[in-house]
Deep mutational scan, measured.
Amino acid sequence: MQRVNMIMAESPGLITICLLGYLLSAECTVFLDHENANKILNRPKRYNSGKLEEFVQGNLERECMEEKCSFEEAREVFENTERTTEFWKQYVDGDQCESNPCLNGGSCKDDINSYECWCPFGFEGKNCELDVTCNIKNGRCEQFCKNSADNKVVCSCTEGYRLAENQKSCEPAVPFPCGRVSVSQTSKLTRAETVFPDVDYVNSTEAETILDNITQSTQSFNDFTRVVGGEDAKPGQFPWQVVLNGKVDAFCGGSIVNEKWIVTAAHCVETGVKITVVAGEHNIEETEHTEQKRNVIRIIPHHNYNAAINKYNHDIALLELDEPLVLNSYVTPICIADKEYTNIFLKFGSGYVSGWGRVFHKGRSALVLQYLRVPLVDRATCLRSTKFTIYNNMFCAGFHEGGRDSCQGDSGGPHVTEVEGTSFLTGIISWGEECAMKGKYGIYTKVSRYVNWIKEKTKLT
């Protein structure tokens, strides 16, 4: 034993070699072989497995989906700052455009905790909710729209109204504003409101030439003092309507412009014939205590009207009353817009006519005020429907199939267009061939041609 100890002390290297040989010859039971080890760690190889990531292109799944990435790591994937920024906006807080917040056709661009709407022409605001041009839906104005110097929408209202708090709607500024039905039992019968379409306001006024200088022999019209197929109006439903009495009662109609003036057809009036105007009328054979009678003290036909040349060209006249009318729910003026808007309103496509005229061709006159909704007829169809001249200051309205029309005794009465609950004068009943005849239409004086003249002559002093 002493000898062994001496050998170990003198030859430590020998001992180490012996131990190493023993270990190498022993069977290893701690580690699995290569094949079995792979069965336990069965993990798919990654895209760049075996390579240094710093030297390969980034992978979106590896960089940002398996674990949260930084902007720089995302930049490695896209290799483009702009594309990385677009991805980053949604990656950080989701897609803010998912709810489609942009209105009126706006395009949404996502941002971090926010979004941006790219608005089409005519709109602005956070969600493109603000109209900035009158060309689109009248700028959301209830009545009139004008573009300011910086191309912003400025709404306005006709006389007797003021802008509401929203700067879009119009509200009454006087007790009985024009064009409004205020009798409670008839307010439910107000005709369907007309909503502004998209309009090209630059070209809204037709490029028409008034044929002022045409000389033409007097034409022989049949029954051209021209509501057939209409309905009984309720008291106060058309408070701007008046009836004219002269040699015979209810020979023509008219509309209240203001307390002192009536507008009617020029062919209705004769110099030297006494005319009485009755406002607030409903049943011409009954006294309903809503009527107001006034005498006409002055007749002003349009300066281009000449019955000797043509009885229905420039067929418009103004009547001055001896005493002002007292405005109330049964006696209310009709609204008159400017030339541009009167023309736009007419193009809405349908209007209402009213009167006490004959209820059928050569038949009896109506006792109760009649009204009828009539569609506008395109000019080409209008011209083809008659052998008589249709001037540019006239328009056609009615039904091709016949059966409904204005008729004798309705002449001078109103053709009105309702705009968001307020009625505007767009025409004056003038003439036609018979009444409600198939293929024939009622012919009306186009008020847009005469609004400046009306307003100039009827100013209240």
Score class of each variant (00 low, 15 high):
Asp212Glu: 12
Ser49Met: 11
Asn42Leu: 08
Val199Ile: 10
Glu270Lys: 11
Val4Glu: 07
Thr16Phe: 12
Val242Tyr: 01
Val374Pro: 04
Asn147Val: 10
Ile300Lys: 03
Leu19Ile: 11
Val242Arg: 00
Pro101Trp: 02
Val30Lys: 15
Gly253Lys: 08
Lys311Phe: 05
Asn113Trp: 04
Ser11Met: 13
Gly439Cys: 05
Arg364Gln: 11
Phe395Leu: 00
Pro101Tyr: 02
Gln143Ile: 00
Phe360Asn: 14
Phe251Tyr: 10
Val447Leu: 08
Val447Lys: 00
Asp200His: 06
Gln90Ser: 14
Leu103His: 11
Arg75Ser: 09
Glu129Pro: 02
Leu369Arg: 15
Thr386Val: 07
Asn147Trp: 14
Thr264Leu: 02
Arg3Met: 12
Val242Trp: 01
Lys457Tyr: 13
Lys446Cys: 04
Glu116His: 06
Val296Lys: 02
Glu288Trp: 05
Thr85His: 05
Thr386Ser: 14
Gly439Ser: 14
Ala149Leu: 09
Ala149Gln: 11
Asn304His: 09
Ile275Thr: 05
Gly427Cys: 00
Arg384His: 09
Asp232Ala: 13
Asp111Glu: 06
Phe121Tyr: 12
Gly125Phe: 00
Pro172Cys: 03
Ser354Ile: 12
Glu98Val: 08
Ile210Trp: 10
Ala26Cys: 11
Phe345Ala: 04
Cys134His: 02
Glu320Phe: 02
Gly13Leu: 14
Gly403Ala: 08
Val416Thr: 11
Phe55Glu: 13
Gly413His: 12
Ser329Pro: 14
Asn104Val: 01
Val195Gln: 14
Ser350Glu: 14
Arg379Ser: 11
Arg83Gln: 15
Gly254Pro: 01
Leu325Asn: 00
Cys268Asp: 00
Val359Ile: 13
Phe221Arg: 12
Thr290His: 12
Ile428Ala: 00
Cys335Met: 01
Ser385Pro: 03
Lys455Cys: 04
Ala26Met: 05
Glu285Val: 10
Asn166Ala: 02
Lys339Cys: 06
Glu401Tyr: 13
Arg3Lys: 09
Cys97Met: 01
Ile15Arg: 06
Ser49Asp: 15
Asp405Thr: 15
Asn36Thr: 10
Leu14His: 03
Thr342Asp: 03
Thr81Cys: 04
Thr461Lys: 09
Tyr47Pro: 13
Gln143Met: 07
Gly421Pro: 02
Asn138Met: 04
Leu327Arg: 06
Gln219Trp: 09
Ala337Arg: 01
Glu420Ile: 07
Asp131Ala: 05
Arg294Asp: 00
Asn147Met: 13
Leu376Asp: 01
Pro333His: 02
Asp111Phe: 08
Gln167Ser: 11
Ala173Thr: 11
Glu35Gln: 12
Asp410Arg: 12
Ile297Gln: 07
Val331Met: 01
Lys152Thr: 09
Asn5Val: 12
Tyr47Asp: 09
Phe55Ile: 12
Gln216Lys: 06
Glu61Gly: 15
Cys407Leu: 08
Leu189Val: 11
Ala207Lys: 12
Asp131Ser: 14
Asp131Gly: 13
Val228Gln: 13
Phe251Val: 07
Lys68Val: 10
Ser156Thr: 11
Trp240Val: 00
Ala164Ser: 07
Thr133Leu: 04
Arg384Glu: 10
Ser114Val: 05
Val353Ile: 14
Ile136His: 15
Asn222Trp: 08
Leu60Cys: 03
Gly106Ser: 03
Glu193Ile: 12
Asn283Lys: 06
Thr271Leu: 13
Thr426Met: 01
Lys168His: 12
Val56Gly: 15
Glu98Cys: 04
Asp405His: 14
Ala26His: 03
Ala337Ile: 01
Asp131Met: 14
Cys117Met: 00
Ile390Thr: 09
Gly253Val: 12
Thr458His: 01
Lys362Gln: 07
Asp212Trp: 10
Phe78Trp: 07
Ala37Ile: 07
Gly402Tyr: 13
Gly272Gln: 07
Asp198Cys: 05
Val195Lys: 09
Ile262Thr: 01
Gly253Asp: 04
Glu231Asn: 14
Leu369Pro: 14
Asp200Gly: 13
Thr271Trp: 07
Lys293Val: 13
Lys438Ser: 14
Lys440Asn: 14
Glu433Val: 07
Lys45Ile: 15
His303Gln: 11
Val153Ser: 06
Thr84Trp: 03
Ser25Met: 14
Asp150Glu: 10
Val228Trp: 07
Pro333Glu: 02
Asn36Pro: 15
Cys102Trp: 00
His34Tyr: 12
Asp322Val: 03
Cys170Phe: 01
Val416Phe: 10
Leu372Ile: 14
Val359Gln: 14
Arg298Ile: 01
Asp249Glu: 13
Arg46Asp: 07
Ser365Met: 12
Asn328Tyr: 00
Glu420Val: 11
Leu32Pro: 06
Ile428His: 03
Glu418Ala: 13
Ile256Trp: 02
Ile316Phe: 01
Asn166Glu: 03
Glu159Lys: 07
Leu325Asp: 01
Thr332Leu: 12
Asp212Ala: 06
Cys155Arg: 02
Asn36Gly: 11
Arg226Met: 12
Arg373Thr: 08
Ile309Gly: 08
Leu20Met: 11
Leu211His: 13
Phe78Ile: 15
Glu66Ile: 04
Leu425Thr: 01
Asp95Ala: 05
Asp410Thr: 12
His302Asp: 02
Val263Gly: 00
Lys455Leu: 09
His282Phe: 08
Gly125Val: 01
Asp95Arg: 08
Tyr450Ser: 02
Leu321Ser: 01
Gly412Pro: 12
Ser423His: 12
Glu53Gln: 07
Gln241Phe: 11
Ile309Asp: 09
